[in-house]
Simulated assay, not measured.
Amino acid sequence: MKEGEFPIVFDGHNDVLERLDDPAGFFERREEGHLDLPRARESGFGGGMFAVWVPPPEGKAAHETLDPSYALRYSLSAAATLFRIEELSEGQVRIVRSAGEIRSCINEGILAAVLHMEGADAIDTDLDALHVLHRAGLRSLGIVWSRPNAFAEGVRVRFGSTPDTGAGLTEAGRRLVRACNELGIVIDVSHLNERGFWDVAELSEAPLVATHSNAHAICPSPRNLTDAQLEAIAASDGIVGLNFGVHFLREDGSEDTDTPIEVMVRHIDHLVEHLGMERVGFGSDFDGICIPDAIGDVRGLPRIMQALREHGYGEEDLKKIAHENWLRVLRKTWGR
């Protein structure tokens, strides 16, 4: 690899689908937001998990339980946006269902998109919708966002508290975990409270995955993972994707975007210490959160890679963090 060059990044989480009014907007360079295809091309962003997140309907608080029929309608519309992006891309974007397809996309310069749901609010307790969505391409599922549903409880973001914020998985949640294992769907523990996390750790036969979370020991947000949780993820041979959100990075939990890249490097160091080099990646949360000014948008990816290189991470380490670790875990979960 030449000086100044970095490996292609596969990213664990973005919310661009929620930002787009029109699928065609993904192909236009935008002044607002973090991610579009032109800027992705400039940054070495090779793809990632494209999240379907359901906002609350008008008049409903963000952390209240959603009506499943409303959540399903919205989720299908958001998923259709991703499929429309693929159709409009003329081969530049591909919705992928296997680690081998991601590898091919990286080699061919095609942006790889994984259909991910950030919260199972749209899924019925009989799990019929899960099977239909899997056939449509769903390959990664967060059981909850930061609100309760029929399967589990999500953590509310109250800085200075632990993720131990309520009951564990419901019986339906346990069935959901088993079904995801059978179908080969990634179970994302980001947003899940601590008791739910330990229930998943006990039940799941797949690697534990936190697509966009950080170290609670550095930033005590309940959205971040305790060292005990990190060690459980390591024992499962899973992965944690570094969240770029400043209030999940900073020791004071503030939304001050004047946050140096060194804070991100410190989280990476902590994750590597507790997980090992093979279990750390990126989970930026682009278009879903306030990120450091030093990163700015997707074009800031080379800056974090350069900071890691200068900090002492070697070229093979950078390749692992950029995409190799994600491909290994996804291959183990998806079976191919």
Rank of each mutant, 00 (worst) to 15 (best):
L115W: 08
E28C: 08
R30Q: 15
I85Y: 13
G47Q: 06
R19C: 03
G91S: 03
L111F: 13
L17F: 05
L17S: 03
R94L: 06
A136D: 02
G47L: 05
Q92E: 14
E108C: 08
T81R: 15
G46S: 11
V54F: 10
V52D: 06
R97G: 13
A62M: 05
P23V: 12
A129S: 07
H34P: 12
T65M: 14
A71E: 03
E28A: 12
A129C: 02
E90V: 02
G47S: 04
I110E: 05
E64C: 06
A99I: 03
P57K: 06
A62Q: 04
E101W: 06
H63M: 03
F26W: 13
P38Q: 10
L17P: 01
P23D: 11
L37Y: 15
H116Q: 06
A24P: 02
D121W: 03
V54P: 08
A136R: 07
I95K: 03
H63L: 04
S69L: 07
A62F: 09
G33H: 13
S43G: 10
R39Y: 13
G100W: 05
V132I: 14
A113T: 04
K60H: 05
D67V: 08
P55T: 12
G46W: 12
A120T: 00
V96K: 04
Q92R: 14
P38G: 09
E118M: 01
A136H: 02
S69N: 01
L66W: 06
Y70V: 06
E64M: 07
D22R: 12
G25K: 11
A113M: 02
L20I: 02
H134C: 07
A120H: 01
P56S: 14
V96F: 05
D67W: 10
A99E: 04
L76E: 14
L35T: 14
S77Q: 15
G100P: 04
A80K: 15
S75E: 10
V52N: 10
I95S: 02
E64F: 07
A24V: 11
M117R: 01
L133F: 11
R41P: 07
M117G: 01
R41A: 14
S75G: 11
L130W: 04
V93T: 02
